Amino acid sequence: MSTLALKGPYWVTVRQYRRTLWLAGTAVVVSLAVIGGLRIWDAQAPDRYYVDGGRYAADDNRGYEMLRLAVEYGGAYLLFLPLLVGVFVAGPLVAREFESGTYKLSLTQSVSPAAWLRTKLLSTTAAAFLTLIALMGVYRIGWGRVAGSWNLDWAERGPYEATGVVLFAYVLAAVAVGALAGLLIRRTLVAMAATGLVMGVVFLVLGAYRWSFLPVKTLTGPAGPTLWTPDHGLMMDTGLLTSSGARFDQQVCWDEVNRTPGLDGMDDGGMKLFDRCLTRHGATSQYVDYHPQSHFWPTQLIESGILLALAALAALAAFRVLRARHP
């Protein structure tokens, strides 16, 4: 067992932030107790069955509703874990060491500046990964029951990150960005704020554009009943097509209805006028652009690749800054 024990700067880092590690462990235990308890509560009420053999939770199953809410909010909370890790690295782990001057003690113990920083980052990354694996495992316990329900589809914010691998890439990016901010700013609160701002922007930008990484698929059909995406696909756009196959903007007909005097709503002849407008423009079919569920893993890998590139650049810059200031 002695060979497995932490030694040198790794032992110092873990010892120094043991309260944070205990807090992370407590979060995992509490999460497991909540999700496990709700699964047991949900199991007390039998499901109802469709005629075709499918089943769904009974309307009076409060355990299922609470489990669904817990999984919904749990996925949102998991999004904050990389942000918290980055803020912790930027502030208490790096910037505070320079702000208080305690880093000098470590550098007098035959530890090079690069080894000192590497130890801190590897320790933090390992602890964050273990915590993330445990929390994602707990999430999966609840996800297996409520997947596909309202706000819990595979492409939603929260489930998308919590059921894939991209959160690990976010953690690596947050660690690297936090280290760079801490080394550049060297003021605890300012470095924490800067890291939170940068990672927040990264979250928002990638979340907004992730479904632009791959081309959408298009399904067409006759105008009339709503055209749904197959196999739980993520709908990106829908509309009408003319007989030539060109896409038609329905707003043209809505504007015509609104400009017609004497109409009092769609029931007062407005719908007939709208339909005549569609016929006049030859809008005879409809389309829907969507991402099939098979795009989940390619999108995850592309987004993870972008984050790993960001992490590599930030880590390289951090060690260069450290080498320049402490050769």
Rank of each mutant, 00 (worst) to 15 (best):
Leu308Ser: 05
Gly270His: 12
Tyr209Lys: 14
Ala58Leu: 03
Leu316Met: 12
Tyr209Met: 13
Gly142Ile: 07
Phe203Gln: 10
Tyr139Pro: 04
Leu322Gly: 04
Gly164Thr: 13
Val202Leu: 08
Ala191Leu: 14
Tyr103Trp: 12
Pro225Ser: 09
Leu79Asp: 07
Leu234Ala: 07
Gly207Ser: 12
Leu308Glu: 01
Asp59Asn: 11
Val198Met: 09
Gly144Trp: 03
Phe296Ala: 10
Arg18Ser: 00
Gly148Ser: 02
Lys217Gln: 15
Leu234Ile: 11
Arg157Phe: 15
Gly8Ile: 05
Tyr56Thr: 12
Asp268His: 10
Phe203Val: 14
Val288Pro: 02
Leu79His: 04
Met235Gln: 11
Ile133Trp: 02
Thr26Gly: 13
Leu219Phe: 09
Pro298Cys: 10
Ile306Leu: 14
Leu189Lys: 09
Ala314Lys: 08
Asp264Arg: 07
Val257Thr: 07
Ser304Trp: 11
Leu132Asp: 05
Val205Glu: 12
Leu307Ile: 01
Leu316Ala: 14
Pro92Trp: 01
Ala174Gly: 03
Trp22Tyr: 12
Leu197Trp: 02
Cys253Phe: 05
Leu313Trp: 05
Gly36Arg: 04
Val146Gln: 00
Pro230Gly: 01
Ala70Met: 03
Val34Asn: 07
Gly37Val: 10
Thr284Asn: 04
Tyr50Lys: 02
Gly158Phe: 05
Ile133Val: 15
Leu227Trp: 00
Met66Thr: 11
Leu152Met: 06
Ala27Cys: 09
